[in-house]
Amino acid sequence: MKLRRRETVSLQLVTALGAAALLFPFLWMISASLQTLQEVEAFPPIWIPEVPQWTNYIEAVVNYNIGRALLNSAVVTTVSVVGQLIVCSLGAYAFSRLRFPGRDAIFLLFLATMMIPHYVTIIPLYTMVWSAGLIDTYTALIFPGLFSPFGTFLLRQFFNQIPISLDEATLIDGGNHWHIYLYVIMPLSRAGLGALGIFSFLGIWNTLFWPVLVINSKELFTLPLALAMAQGQFVTLIHVQMAGSVIACVPVIVVFLMLQKQFISSIALSGMKQ
């Protein structure tokens, strides 16, 4: 589809304006994180601080205990994502490839529960966590999230598209079902696994509700929780809060920029597969 030159130029302009509008809050956040309190309050707003206040970042790191929170988030997210990929791919493999009595009944039951929002199950889950004495543990953060129904469903759809003739070939070559899973299904589903991985990464890295419930001690705060608690507990000032927010954004942005293609296809894939 060819566009005329003038059209192209105006579209280009619109796109750039839109991008500028979206970047605007980001830029303000970064700018405010480097200002003094007087500068943040000034009218008209100051965009370039006279002397960049790097101490705001130090203050944020100290106030929010950011180092520890980063570590916690990294541990919880990594273990959750890897665990979820293993558990869900095994489940999806069974649903997609292996026939055993009860399979379809289980699948139906599973489909029936998929629409039920997380918030319905949160109170019983929370009850289980404290009854089992798991409040304030990594386990409480990680375990209930490993068995993602969505993940299993997504991967099953993926596995279904891999030709079954490949399985048969493996079996004929003397392989068993584990070989099919390890050497046929998994390598051919990299896109699906990547999609699920990134999808869960974003979800787990950013989530607030569950950590608020099951975590009490500062030493186990995840990044969103550390930010939210600092915001609610002792009022810190604009510029320091913005420094904290910038720090919280950096890891996701870095990962995003590194794996951009996978991010995009993750959203597109999880969006397209039905």
Partner: peptide, 19 residues
């Protein structure tokens, strides 16, 4: 007992015998 029931029997049972 609580841990056992939480992990094996699951939430429904749990609540019924909440301490």
């Amino acid at each position: 007992f609580l841990q056992g029931s939480a992990l094996v029997a699951g939430g429904a049972f749990m609540v019924a015998c909440a301490p």
